[in-house]
Amino acid sequence: MESLHELPNIGGILEQKLVQVGIGTPQQLRELGSKEAFLKIRRIDHTACLHMLTALEGAVQGVRKTELSSQVKAELRAFYNSL
């Protein structure tokens, strides 16, 4: 079974935060989506930043966050700025 830390961009700290908010598997993260996962983390960690959001989206898509399209990055930035 695949674990969270096997996904791109998910290190030990982000994995701990995901587990803290009830997201324990890659499938759960994919089903919830990066924005919802980020909102859950933000409730327990007010320092959660745009870099974390892009890392989560990259993990959902299975790519490094630097490989996200400029359109996706812009959408994530707009979402983050709306919070």
Rank of each mutant, 00 (worst) to 15 (best):
R30Y: 08
L7S: 07
H5N: 13
A37F: 06
V21H: 11
A78L: 12
F79V: 00
R30V: 10
R30T: 06
A59K: 01
G58K: 02
L39D: 03
K17E: 11
I23A: 05
A59M: 05
E31T: 11
I44W: 04
V60T: 06
R64Q: 07
Q27M: 07
G58D: 03
L39I: 08
T25G: 07
R64H: 09
I23Y: 02
G58N: 04
T47P: 00
K65H: 14
H51V: 12
E67P: 00
E57W: 02
Q71R: 13
G22M: 08
Q28L: 12
I10W: 14
I44T: 11
H5M: 10
R43Q: 11
V21A: 08
I44V: 15
Q71T: 10
K35D: 04
D45T: 11
Q27W: 03
A78W: 00
Q16G: 13
A59G: 06
A37P: 07
M1Q: 12
G22K: 11
K65G: 00
H46G: 11
L39T: 02
D45A: 11
A59D: 02
E31N: 11
S70T: 09
G11A: 10
F79T: 01
E67V: 02
Y80G: 02
K73Y: 01
Q20A: 12
G24T: 09
E57D: 09
E6H: 13
P26Q: 05
H5F: 06
P8V: 06
I23T: 07
E67G: 00
A55G: 14
K40W: 06
P8H: 12
E2Q: 15
R30C: 05
S70G: 02
G12N: 15
E36I: 03
Q61G: 00
P26N: 07
G11I: 11
G22R: 08
Q28G: 11
R77G: 00
V63N: 01
I44C: 08
L29D: 02
Q61W: 01
L29A: 05
E2M: 15
A78N: 07
V72S: 06
K17I: 02
S3R: 14
A48Q: 04
L32M: 12
L76K: 01
L76W: 00
I13Q: 13
R64V: 02
E67K: 12
E67Y: 03
I41L: 08
Q20F: 09
S69C: 04
I41P: 03
L39F: 03
R64M: 07
L29C: 09
S34G: 08
A55H: 02
I41M: 08
N81Q: 14
L7Y: 07
S34D: 07
I13K: 15
D45C: 10
M52G: 02
V19K: 15
N81T: 00
K65A: 03
R42S: 12
Q27I: 05
K35P: 00
F38D: 01
S70F: 04
M1Y: 11
H51Q: 15
R43A: 11
S34H: 05
A37K: 04
H5T: 14
I44F: 05
N9F: 05
L76N: 01
L14T: 15
L68C: 03
E31S: 12
A74V: 01
N9C: 10
E31D: 13
T66A: 12
R77Y: 01
N9L: 10
L76E: 00
H51A: 14
Q20W: 10
